[in-house]
Every structure is written in C-alpha cells, then in structure tokens.
Design a protein around this nucleic acid. Sequence first.
DNA 1: CAGCATCCGTAACGATACTG
DNA 2: CAGTATCGTTACGGATGCTG
Lengths: 139, 139
Amino acid sequence: MQDSAGIGMAASVGPCASIPADHMDFIRQVLDRVGDKWSMLIIAVLEGGPTRYTDLQRQIPGISQRMLTHTLHQLTEDGLISRTAYAEVPPRVEYALVPLGGGLNEIVKQLIGWAADHHDEIRANRSRAGTTASSASRS
Amino acid sequence: MQDSAGIGMAASVGPCASIPADHMDFIRQVLDRVGDKWSMLIIAVLEGGPTRYTDLQRQIPGISQRMLTHTLHQLTEDGLISRTAYAEVPPRVEYALVPLGGGLNEIVKQLIGWAADHHDEIRANRSRAGTTASSASRS
DNA sequence: CAGCATCCGTAACGATACTG
DNA sequence: CAGTATCGTTACGGATGCTG
C-alpha cells in the first residue's frame, strides 16, 4: 500500500480521492444485478406498464425461458419489480415496476439515451482500433 | 412482431412503445462494454485524472493484469479513454477519460449514487425473498 | 514498468424436455 | 400460460510465466 516511487514519480496525485473503495462494493453489487444480459431490457420493457410472462418473452427476442424466469426472479427478490399471480383458469402472471425499480429505470433510460446517441460513434472508434497511436517523447 | 392475442388480451397496451427493439441492440452493446466486471470501476477511477497502469492496478484491489489490460484495451478501442505512452527509459503509460467516456461517467456516477442510496434496501428485500407473496383472486 | 501468452476453473447462458 | 429441471457449451475471469 505504500507508494513505491521508482524514478521521477511526483505524478499529479491531485485530489487522490478517486474511488473511496467503499463505493466499489456498491457498484459491483448493482452491476452484477443490473449489468447482466437481460435485467435492463426487462426493466425497460416493464416501463410500458404491467406485462405478463409471455408478453415479456415476445418483446425480448433473444431471451430464453430459463433466463427470463431467472432474471425475473432476481429482480423480484431485490424488490425492483412486483409479481402478481391471478388465480384464473388460464394462469396469468403480471410483472410490474415498483417505485424502487422505477428509480433505477430513470438511470437506465439515461443510459439508453446515451447509448443511442453515441453508439455509432463508438462503433466508428472501434473500427479504427489502434490507428490513433499517440507517442509522446519525454526524456 | 404481430400481436397474437390468446385469450382476453385487451391488456393495457397503452403507448405500446415500450422498447422500439431498435434500442435493444444499443442497450446490449453498451451493457456488454460497461456492464462487465471492471469497466465501470476503471472509468470511475479515471475520473480522478490521468492514471497509469500500475496505479490503476493498485486502486482496484481484486483485478488481475489480464482483466486490467483487456478492459483497458476495449475502452481504448471504443474511444472512451485515451492511452498515452511516454517513451521514457522506464516505460510509462497513462490512461485518461476522453469527453465521450466522461459523458458515460456522468451516468455511471448516477448509478453509483443510486446504488449507494438503495443498496441496503435492496439487501433487505433480498433477505425477505419470497415472504411477500401476493395472490390476487379474480375470476 | 507495462503488457502479452497460456492454461484452467467456474458459472453464465441457451436449448430442450417436462410439470402445475 | 407460466414455470421448473437437466444438460451442454461457451465465455469470462484468475494465476502464472515471459517479453520489450
């Protein structure tokens, strides 16, 4: 943990704060839940109102029952969405966003907006990949 | 894409927009890049200013060289961060956020803020897991 | 110091089949 | 309709050793 300064060091440590390390845990916690392959998609779809199982499956093309059920279960356990089962003859279950999940959805929407706004730029950069090699000389 | 209504349907489609399916691709693209295990941490650390390889490794406890290098490479390719190599006797390389990555960082910070604000609530909900079984009768 | 190459374990994910 | 259970594949991610 001690600062091993080999040569010049004297680097611009500045505020030094960066990440308090306390937050690192939070980020990972949230990311493991929201950052997986389907959670955000489900949350985004649920924004359009209560949706039932099969509708979810139809609105999210590539998802499998396994993942849909699994992700739905996790989101429900975390209290981000609610599950309501109607005891009807043809079983019906509706999933909906709860306030907590709604708050997260706001951030997800921003992320989606950002993605939609810059995705072509990112793809362009990804193509150039390694072209812009900036070499600075500094004895 | 056509609406196959099994039984009652007539569900509250409302705006029906939900996700234009066009965006689904964007979300996944961004999530696969940002939603992995380390990208966000690196971006968050980089917010504190240009940082060099070993400093990054020291500020992110659990990361391995493989993942650090790999993630750094991807972020650089996407144009989210910049890589500057100084041709000095002891090699020095500094990574820094570029405007594009900075914009994403703003969203990331919100996500971190949300996580820090609700992580205990989520953990609490996760513990109850399955206690609040709401069954609605309707037939 | 910065980075790459290789091996290997884990678990995330998808496809299929079966149940209430 | 709404799930559960099992299996196989793949990739993610970590440890180690070597190069410039």
